[in-house]
Amino acid sequence: MVVLDIETEDGQREALRRMLTIRAFDTKAADLFSDGELPGFVHLYVGEEAVGVGACSALESDDYITSTHRGHGHCIAKGLDPDLMMAELFGKANGYCNGKGGSMHIADVDAGMLGANGIVGAGPPLATGAALTSHLKGEDTVALAFFGDGAVAQGQVHEAINLAATWDLPAVFLVENNQYGEATPVEKQHNVQNLSETAEAYNIPGFTVDGMDITAVYEAVKEARKRAADGEGPTFIEAETYRYHGHFEGDQQPYRTEEDVAIWKDRDAIESFKRRLVDAGTITGAEFDEMKAEIDQQIEDAVGKAKDAAYPDPSEAYEDMFNAAVPEISDFSSGMRADGGEDR
């Protein structure tokens, strides 16, 4: 991963590029899904780009993140390759999980991305585990868990935070409060008004930041990372944000109105950051348009490459799934190879 220094002009342009890449990737994924070209479900990150990019900008390259079912943005923010992500969405062999994970399981351990996850609230325990590993090995890496407002009501999330807090582990818990847990508004899910109040139960700092402002998220995570790396334990950050798309593609969204969405689009993270950079002279309007066109083409190319790529061989259907050999799977794979595999 290329580390962004968002305090420099180059870093700010790169942060803008990553936010635009996320939006282009997920906007394309929506089109592909509605055209029936993608298998499985997709949950899109459009609107929340400042959280992922702001947070990852504050991390070091060998730090870890855990993700959610809405993970494309986290992947791109951490520096993963959109070509290999798109291949994974299409179920192709050159995807990050050899085409067997799909949208909700993209992972790249070498890049510090410990996986998107279809189970709500499954990321924080993984982050606590990664933080414990770092602590036991005496490393200086930090693990950051992205999770949603719905996950805050899940038991394992609290177990993870409690353990990390009790053991002063180098973890950061970042809840992306996008205002809805599936179809339920956040105020109907939780008895606290700010989810960051949850931190008080664990005797760790908790605070809320504007998740539509990449610089606010960056600063918050930077301070939390420093605290974690200094051995002072985890921090709980709530980033208030909004997803422009439904919970999943195809969601009819009866739980909100167009006016609700418009209020948040009025504070769009990409548009406001672009405006600030243009005002500061960091980028011109023409350079922004050029960057956007370049990214749109990059994503179109990723789709083309993904479509042209091969599916995994059926004989490998059960490979890459278990750490230890499973005799029944070995037998199955041998049989498939002997048969020459299924005709696709």
Binding site: E197, F207, V209, A220, R227
Partner: peptide, 21 residues
């Protein structure tokens, strides 16, 4: 104001928490 008393000074300084309860 539900947002008052929830900012980063709970981490970077000695500001007290003002929760919504």
């Amino acid at each position: 104001n539900p947002a008052a008393g929830r900012d980063i000074r709970r981490l970077t300084g000695g500001a007290s928490v003002s929760n919504n309860y």
